Simulated assay, not measured.
Amino acid sequence: MSLAMKPGQMTVSDPLNKRTYRIRDITSQFVRELRRYWFEILLLTLWLLLNAGDGVWLYFFVDPNPRTAVNKTSGKFKAFEVMMYIFGFPWSLLNGLIVYHFCAAAASSPFVTKPVGRRRRPTWWFILLFIFIIAPISAVLVIFPAVGSWILVPIVQSWAWNHRCDEYPMFAVLDSRSVQDPSYIPNVARFYQTETDKLLFSYYLNGGEKGSNNWRFTLREFHTDQSLVPITLYPTLQSVQYEIGNATITGNCTVPASPGSSNITTTPCMTGTFDAGAWLSFNLTAAIPFNSTDTPVASTTTLLRALDKEWIFGDDKIPSLILRTVNTLTGGLTTRTVLKTSVEKRGDCTAMKVCLAGTPRLGSVVGAEVMGPLGLLLIRQVNHARICTTPSNDY
C-alpha cells in the first residue's frame, strides 16, 4: 500500500526540486572556484583596470580640446603620443596572451563544459556568452592598445565636426587655400546658424602680400536673403583691419542710414589691441549696432583671453583654443566662452570649425568679441593650411 503525499509535499524527482538542487550545486561550485582562483581573479581585475586606464589614455589622445594635463602644451602632447605607441604595442601582445590563456583554461573547465564521450564541449550558455560578450571584448583588448588611435580618431573627429557646436547659436567654417590652389581662391569664413545648419553669410581675408603686416577681414556675400537673417545673428561689423606689427585692430560697421532706408552708412565702430603670444588676448572697445538704427547699443570695453597656453598648437601650427571673457576687477577668466575651435574637417586640413557664442551684452552674436578674434584665427589657419598641404609634409 502506497502512502499518499500531503498537499504541497514534493518528491526528489519533482522538476522544481531538481532545479533547486541544480542551482545550489552550481552556486557551490562557483564559490569553490572563486576560492581556488582568488589570486588569478585579483590579477584579472587589475588587468581590466589597466585596460580601462588605457581607454582613458586613448580618449585624451583623440579629443585634445579642451586641454588636459597631458596636452597643456604641444611638447607634453608629443611625449604623451610617443609613450602611447611605445606602451600600446606590448600591451596588445600581453592582452592577446592573456585572452588565449583564458580561452584555453575555459575549454577544460568543468564549470563551462560538459562531457561528451571522451571529450568536453562548451555548454550552450558559454557559447552564447563567448560570441556576444567575451569575443568582442577580447578583440577590443587586443586591437585598441596598439592601433586604437587610428581607429578612434576618424570617429571622434567626425562626431566633433557634426556635433561639437550644437549648444552654440552659430558656428563658422574657416576654409583656407591650400598650396595647390590658384591664388584667386579666397581664404574665407562661412557663418552658419546652428539650429537650421543654414549658411547665412561669408567673410574673406585679404592682405599680407609680400610680407605686409596689414590684413583685412571683410564681408564677402550673403548666402541667405538679408531680411531672413535673424537680427541677433546679423553682421553689422562688416570690415575688420589688423596691424600685426603694432598689434592693433579696428573695425567698421555698415547699417541703414535711417530706419527702413535702403541707403547704408559705414562708420568706425571698434578699436582695440591684441597679444598674439602664447596666451592670446584682446582688449576691444566697440559699439556694434543692430541692423536697425532705432535700437541703440552702448559702447563697451571687453577683455578676452585664451583659456590655455599655446593657442597655435603642434608642428603644423593649428589654431586650438577656447576664448573667454576676463573679469576686469580680478583679472581672472570668467566661465563665459566667446568662441572655441572645434576640429578640422576629416580628410581636409584646410577647413576648421569654430563654435561661436558671443557675449551676453546687447547686440549680435557676431559682434566685436567674435569677429575680431575670428579674423586673426583665419590668418593663422591660412598658415596651417599652407604647412599641412605642402607635398613634403606627411600630415
Score class of each variant (00 low, 15 high):
309 K>A: 14
220 R>D: 15
373 P>W: 02
115 P>I: 01
118 R>V: 00
138 S>L: 07
253 C>S: 10
352 M>S: 08
286 A>C: 05
386 R>K: 08
94 L>Q: 11
176 S>G: 02
22 R>Y: 00
216 R>S: 15
75 G>L: 10
188 V>Y: 03
86 I>M: 14
319 P>E: 01
284 L>G: 12
137 I>D: 00
114 K>F: 05
129 L>W: 11
4 A>M: 07
9 Q>F: 05
51 N>R: 00
149 S>I: 10
285 T>S: 15
358 G>L: 04
247 A>H: 09
355 C>S: 05
392 S>W: 12
192 Y>P: 06
297 V>F: 14
86 I>W: 15
288 I>N: 06
68 T>R: 14
352 M>T: 03
86 I>D: 15
4 A>S: 12
91 W>I: 13
194 T>Y: 02
338 V>D: 02
45 T>G: 07
54 D>M: 11
280 L>A: 08
44 L>R: 01
56 V>H: 12
230 P>Q: 03
252 N>P: 01
365 V>C: 04
214 N>F: 13
170 M>D: 04
335 T>D: 15
118 R>K: 12
59 Y>I: 03
294 D>T: 13
203 Y>R: 08
145 P>F: 00
264 I>E: 13
65 N>W: 00
183 S>M: 12
390 T>V: 08
85 Y>C: 09
381 Q>F: 09
268 P>T: 07
296 P>K: 03
150 W>M: 06
30 F>A: 09
206 N>D: 15
152 L>C: 06
152 L>G: 04
250 T>Y: 04
240 V>F: 06
309 K>G: 13
32 R>Y: 00
316 D>K: 14
254 T>W: 08
188 V>R: 08
153 V>L: 11
105 A>M: 12
147 V>Q: 03
67 R>P: 08
245 G>R: 12
259 P>Y: 14
271 T>C: 02
279 W>T: 15
249 I>T: 01
363 G>T: 03
242 Y>F: 09
252 N>I: 02
202 S>D: 15
84 M>Y: 11
188 V>G: 04
191 F>K: 01
248 T>I: 06
130 F>W: 08
63 D>P: 04
289 P>K: 12
154 P>G: 07
175 D>C: 04
182 P>T: 04
68 T>C: 08
125 W>Y: 05
309 K>V: 15
167 E>T: 14
281 S>L: 05
341 T>R: 03
207 G>H: 05
197 D>V: 07
295 T>R: 15
68 T>W: 12
344 E>I: 10
205 L>H: 07
148 G>K: 08
46 L>F: 13
211 G>F: 04
53 G>A: 11
343 V>C: 05
157 Q>T: 09
221 E>V: 10
250 T>R: 10
15 P>A: 02
176 S>Y: 01
10 M>F: 11
78 K>D: 13
170 M>V: 05
83 M>Q: 12
285 T>I: 06
275 D>S: 14
263 N>S: 14
30 F>M: 00
244 I>N: 11
218 T>Q: 13
349 C>L: 11
87 F>I: 11
179 V>W: 12
